[in-house]
């Protein structure tokens, strides 16, 4: 039982990651795949941030007095990772627009059919 209390946070993150991952690999719609990818990544960010949390801690902005702070390093890493994530999303969206212009569809299935019929 104590394991559950200690770890349930992580398990929810893992659940979210897997929902995102599942969307990426099972769906045929290009836009939805990218949304799945974002959900996957965001859940990983949650995992990072949660490992930085300290019981009774506060945001790592130094104040007067004896305060305990949460770990700032995961925050820094995830700031960078979020930016990387949005950069990937922007690129993917531009690609999808181009694919739509070239194929007239954003469904993987239809694209395969068009390529196969060549």
């Amino acid at each position: 039982m104590s394991t559950f209390i200690d770890l349930y946070n992580y398990w929810i993150f893992i659940f979210l990651m897997m929902v995102g991952f599942y969307i990426v690999i099972s769906q045929g719609n290009l836009v939805k795949k990218i949304i799945g990818l974002n959900i996957f990544q965001t859940a990983v960010f949650l995992l990072y941030i949660s490992m930085g949390k300290v019981k009774g801690g506060t945001a790592p902005i130094i104040m007067a007095g004896d305060v305990s702070y949460s770990n700032p390093l995961p925050h820094v890493l995830i700031l960078t990772a979020i930016v990387v994530g949005v950069a990937t999303t922007a690129l993917a969206m531009a690609l999808i627009i181009r694919i739509r212009k070239a194929y007239g569809t954003i469904e993987e299935q239809d694209i395969h059919e068009q390529d196969a019929s060549l």
Binding site: V31, I34, I35, N38, T42, F45, I49, S50, G52, K53, V54, G57, T58, A59, P60, I61, Y69, S70, P74, H75, I78, L79, I82, V83, G85, V86, T89, A90, M93
Partner: peptide, 24 residues
């Protein structure tokens, strides 16, 4: 979880920029 900077960025990026990009 005390990550205010990250929250700020996630709100601006995830709820803002990414959503706008996908919508357009």
């Amino acid at each position: 979880l005390d990550a205010v900077d990250v929250a700020f960025t996630e709100a601006a990026v995830g709820a803002g920029i990414s959503t706008i990009l996908i919508l357009s």
